[in-house]
């Protein structure tokens, strides 16, 4: 469970409480205070743990670990980086309600045909109806906007184990872009309840009625830090998203290094022309040798492969992709 740090209203000392707790005792002055979130939605911040340099290093390391290694890591230049604080809805509480299901049932029945041969058949049984009360804890996180360009972040897990603090907008906005939530809380609640309802075996269910709602709700917008870096190579721009808490590269699309055969196509042409400008026999012999070498090199003798090799079209190693 996340720890939230405030200032004690009595002595001003740091005052910690676990996410969802309603009260705690200040360890400096001993006064108990309770936390009210009724006036709005709690806005919590998970502070960034890596700076821009560490984020750049994380990308370089990832590139260096790729197929093209060091060559790839040095071929991309860093252009710029921005820290984003992305809001995520966090819904905690108790999902309470009821669920009623009607299921089809089938049973195996043994029967005999006119020749007396035994066989089994499947017969539809009586529908099975079940009623259950739902009262289970709920802990759900969902992006408060469309963040596909940033990749997948495991904010729910992070928010449950990391220290959060009340969001100080001015201070946070001075360090990066604080994104606005563009998904309503009702939508987050619906998603949370859908996850609650999703459990259980629904095979054979022909009708389902339910009413589930959230009680003891504790609602927060958790702002999660993500670095957005731009790398360039030859005028091309490659955006990268880096988790600013643990330094993981969560989204990037770097193409592989181009590998071009330089000498071989020139040598083949020279060999063929040397033969044909000497004698026709030499031309035939050296062309046959060139064809053999081509087959050995490309593994095929189809025209596009040969044209690609002779034209010096580059081959590319596997790129580096995340998210």
């Amino acid at each position: 469970m996340a720890t939230i740090v405030f200032k004690c209203p009595h002595c001003g000392g740091p005052f910690e409480c676990a996410e969802g707790d309603r009260g705690a005792v200040c360890r400096f002055c001993g006064v108990t205070s309770v936390i009210s979130g009724d006036s709005g939605v709690h806005r919590l911040l998970i502070r960034e743990r890596i700076d821009l340099n560490a984020a750049r290093t994380a990308v370089r390391k990832l590139l260096a670990a790729g197929e093209s290694g060091r060559e790839s890591a040095t071929s991309f230049s860093f252009k710029e980086g921005t820290l984003f604080f992305l809001p995520f809805w966090r819904v905690r509480g108790m999902a309470t309600g009821w669920q009623w299901r009607e299921k089809e049932t089938f049973r195996e029945e043994v029967d005999y045909d006119e020749n007396g041969t035994r066989f089994t058949r499947t017969v539809k049984g009586e529908n099975e109806r079940s009623f259950s009360l739902i009262a289970k804890p709920l802990d759900f996180s969902t992006p408060a906007g469309e963040y596909s360009s940033f990749g997948q972040m495991r904010v729910g897990i992070a928010a449950a184990v990391l220290k959060c603090e009340a969001l100080d907008y001015q201070d946070t906005a001075a360090r990066g872009t604080v994104a606005d939530p563009l998904k309503g809380v009702a939508q987050a609640r619906q998603e949370a309840l859908a996850v609650t309802r999703g459990g259980g075996n629904s095979e054979g269910t022909i009708r389902r009625e339910e009413r589930v709602r959230i009680s003891s709700e504790w609602l927060a917008l958790t702002y999660y830090p993500v670095w957005r870096l731009l790398f360039t190579r030859g005028g091309r721009v490659y955006p990268v998203a880096i988790d600013a808490v643990n330094g993981d590269v969560i989204r990037c699309q770097f193409p592989g290094e181009e590998r071009r055969e330089r000498f071989l196509p020139l040598a083949f042409i020279a060999m063929v022309l040397l033969g044909w400008t000497t004698t026709p026999t030499a031309g035939v012999a050296l062309t046959a040798l060139a064809v053999y070498l081509l087959k050995w090199r490309t593994g095929t003798l189809d025209a596009p492969s040969i044209i690609k090799l002779l034209a010096g079209t580059s081959k590319r190693s596997a790129g580096v992709q995340r998210g």
């Binding site: 984003f84 906007g145 469309e146 963040y147 360009s149 940033f150 906005a173 604080v178 606005d180 563009l182």
Partner: peptide, 8 residues
């Protein structure tokens, strides 16, 4: 398909 993340 959706508004981008950012400060409005």
């Amino acid at each position: 398909p959706a508004p981008p993340p950012g400060n409005l």
